[in-house]
């Protein structure tokens, strides 16, 4: 009489449960499998070049020499440039929409900002080739060279296609990510925090500064990291405007190359196994970086969603 009773389930129910369970586990398997698949293909390159792969500047398929440093460099410079531009603007958009705009205005502008994320990458690239790059070449780069030319970043011939163009286009593409995540975490800040600040006589800006931003800080950091992740892996638009030359030059005007771009351009031309293997190794590095970045970014965003961390009532 004191046994504990169990629920029984019919066959159909058990099938549904197992089916959904296997799909859920499938997501984990998919992630691991993707990593393994790439590691397996990249193995010849990893064994041949070791750590030298990421420190060598020479990329010469004819001589079977493969070093990924120029691509890593181009990826990092364009991504950080994009972050520098998109993070403050994205955060500003989020603050404006969440804390200041009226609700109807908020819906319309919020939708427009989301549309920025909906435009396909290849269309940004097309616009970059025919609108952005020529404008940079004739107007922006000469101007920058004239006024800021004492900094090595802004020296050299204006070309249009280069790291500046790549960084700018990436900034546009990651801005909606940063804005959306920042909005999400700011919306998770309890209204009580805001009211407490206002009740003490704070102005709107002071309320945002002392009650909203500290509370949402780690989530906003997470959003910026997700933006960075997107910038690092973005392929088409960068491929179309970065100039595609495996050089490491200080000038932002100079043509460069990115990790994703070299994969996109050379993958179908990789005529022998080591060449393909080297390209896949670049992909593997990109996979690893974005995986780690996303992991920590999600941790930060989740921590905000789950409750207060840091930040207190004034």
């Amino acid at each position: 009489m004191s046994k504990q009773y169990k629920l029984t389930a019919s066959l159909g129910d058990q099938i549904l449960r197992l089916l959904t369970l296997s799909m859920a586990i499938g997501v984990l398997v998919l992630m691991v499998w993707m990593g393994w698949q790439m590691f397996d293909t990249a193995r010849p390159s990893i064994q041949r070049f070791g750590l030298g792969f990421i420190t060598s500047r020479v990329w010469d398929p004819v001589k079977e020499q493969f070093g990924a440093l120029p691509f890593i460099y181009g990826t990092l410079v364009t991504s950080f440039l994009a972050l520098l531009l998109a993070a403050p603007i994205g955060l500003g958009v989020a603050i404006f929409l969440n804390e200041m705009a009226e609700s109807r205005f908020r819906a319309v502008v919020g939708f427009l900002v989301e549309m920025l994320a909906a435009i396909p990458s290849v269309v940004y690239g097309l616009w970059g080739i025919f609108v952005l790059a020529p404008w940079l070449k004739t107007t922006v780069e000469p101007g920058l060279a004239k006024w800021l030319g004492f900094i090595p970043l802004f020296q050299g011939t204006p070309v249009g296609f280069g790291m500046l163009a790549g960084g700018l286009i990436l900034a546009v593409m990651i801005l909606p990510t940063i804005a959306a995540i920042s909005r999400e975490v700011m919306a998770a800040v309890p209204n009580m925090q805001r009211e407490a600040a206002l009740a003490l006589g704070a102005t709107k800006w002071e309320m945002i500064r002392v009650a909203v931003l500290p509370y949402a800080k780690s989530g906003i950091m997470g959003g910026i990291m997700l933006g960075l992740g997107r910038a690092l892996g973005e392929t088409m638009a960068v491929t179309m405007v970065i100039g595609n030359r495996p050089d490491i030059l200080a000038s932002l005007f100079a043509p460069a190359y990115s990790m994703a771009a070299v994969i996109a351009n050379e993958f179908t031309e990789a005529t022998y196994d080591l060449y393909l293997s080297a390209l896949v190794e670049i992909g593997l590095i990109l996979f690893g970086i974005t995986l780690v970045l996303n992991f920590f970014a999600r941790l930060l965003v989740w921590s905000v969603g789950r409750g207060p961390k840091g930040g207190s009532i004034v």
Partner: peptide, 26 residues
């Protein structure tokens, strides 16, 4: 398990799409 799967799902959305191309190619 669900927490891990949920987390993996979030991380997967951030993987560059060209990576998927490589994997399906190989």
């Amino acid at each position: 398990l669900s927490t891990v799967v949920r987390f993996a799902t979030d991380v997967l959305t951030g993987i560059p799409s060209i990576i998927v191309g490589i994997v399906i190619y190989t």
